[in-house]
Simulated scan of single mutants.
Amino acid sequence: MWVFRFLFTETVRLLRSAEGRRLVWLAFLYGDRPRNQPVDVKFGRYTFRVPDALSFVWQFREIFVDEFYHFSTKSAQPVIFDCGTNVGTSIAYFHQTYPNARIVAFEADEHISAILQNNLKQNQISNVEVITKAVWTNQEGIWFGSDQSDSASIFSETDRKLVPSIRLRDYLLREPRIDMLKMDIEGAETAVLTDCRDALAHVQTMFVEFHAYLNHPQTLAEVVQVLEESGFRYYINTSQYRHAPLINHRYRGNDSMDLQLNIFAYRN
């Protein structure tokens, strides 16, 4: 038995939990679907419209199985800022785990935001303010380009367009306390966090998906410096295993990005 568990550790871990078993079933149902084709996906008590099934399966694993966004709070009504909400999988998790939370959701893509709002309405998820603007350092708009099937980036040159923006710092300063700041904004995180460095004192926990793009500086040190100066402890991991990394420089064979990290920041 120990040999089986050694060889199939990941499968055993997944099958031990209800959400892990659900992930296996979702992967079976939707993992081989053609990319970039809308489909209705059922998970738990929710039914979501998603523009790409495989991307959703990965989201479900990170959010519901690995619980990247789980945090501790003593607040009866925690305040959550969700920057880069996509179609709302993260909102479903927050709503399920913190049913009294007040959530502010930022989504830059107008089409994705429409899907998000419909998903919230169809699943009767309330107390969510959706802002269809990019999180940025000013209100003058920001240029985004498409990048593969499930993301866009400020560094991509493909199908670039100017989208409306908000200055996140202004929104942070309006709140006396923010229990969770989730940030998945595809390359804009370093500039935004640097701009917010004097507005993070009342933020209790953070999740930042860090990206480094080819032919652009790697700015991880700047992000870590902001976190340290703001009094956070942090943990960093990556969702990939890279064989021979000194010669294999690409993130999952990506043509535009060479590093993606998950940064979990918290206060003692």
Rank of each mutant, 00 (worst) to 15 (best):
C196Y: 06
V135D: 02
I185R: 03
Q148Y: 10
Q59W: 07
I112C: 03
L181W: 12
S146E: 03
W2A: 15
R160L: 00
D198C: 12
D32H: 08
G231C: 09
H95T: 02
V208M: 00
K42S: 05
D195A: 15
E157V: 02
E228N: 12
V226Q: 12
K42V: 02
H211A: 03
E19P: 06
V226W: 08
G145M: 00
F144A: 01
P176N: 14
A105S: 05
R21Q: 15
Y93R: 01
C196E: 06
N138Y: 05
C196V: 07
F28Q: 14
T158V: 09
P164T: 01
E175W: 05
I80S: 11
L15K: 14
R167G: 04
V39K: 09
F81L: 10
A188N: 00
V135T: 00
V24E: 11
Y98L: 05
R250T: 10
R169S: 14
E110T: 06
N118G: 08
H202V: 08
I115A: 11
H70M: 05
T137M: 04
G20Y: 07
N248S: 11
E107I: 05
I63A: 09
L168T: 04
F28L: 14
G253L: 04
A134C: 07
K121Y: 04
V50T: 07
V208W: 06
Y266C: 15
I131H: 10
V87R: 03
